[in-house]
Amino acid sequence: MLKELRPAIVVLVLLTLITGLVYPLGMTGIAGALFPKQAQGSLIEKDGKVIGSALIGQAFESDKYFHGRPSATTGPDPKDATKTVSAPYNASNSMGSNLGPTSKALADRLKEDVDKLKAENPNAAVPVDLVTASGSGLDPDVSPAAALFQVPRVAKARGLPDQNVRALVEAQTEGRTLGLLGEPRVNVLKLNLALDALRS
């Protein structure tokens, strides 16, 4: 058995270096050369400053912007570092709510959000993705229905005609990949950027 010790150490160390250093560092070089934008995190810049990533949702609260889905991410409590507090769209601590189907906390949260949205737009059915927390807490997308649901609020806050905002949503809607995979969706950050561009 002792004669297996030498290969155990040498093969392990060599394969560790190949798979743990040569491979990831080599891939970092190749990725940076082929797809530099994606490799850095698909960052979006405006006036030379990073305003976010096309793939990472942001917490929009103003009526003038389209809102993303509820986010269950947390961050450290500024008053007590051993505790955490709700911090939606914290992109350095991804997580879902992990509330189960018979959770009272989930039922209460859903009811409160549905009531709020019904008051905002009584004419449409509340889309399910607009009140359910995403798995990552960073979902960059909403369903087309969830974006259209918000059109009256955004149009009113910006003093724009409904149909202009609606047309913008439709232009920003992405279909299924190859017409087949995934679900139709609207990237909220890109939609809001287009909205800002529309105004100016």
Binding site: M27, A39, G41, L193
Partner: peptide, 29 residues
């Protein structure tokens, strides 16, 4: 890996990115 990066997956040794969102909030990515 090349396919995944093409689809948008990061592959960098750079530090976490500090962004200022459209509403002016800080977001560390």
């Amino acid at each position: 890996t090349v396919f995944l990066v093409w689809q948008g997956m990061p592959q960098t040794l750079g530090a976490y990115v500090d962004a200022t969102t459209l509403e002016g909030a800080k977001q560390t990515i």
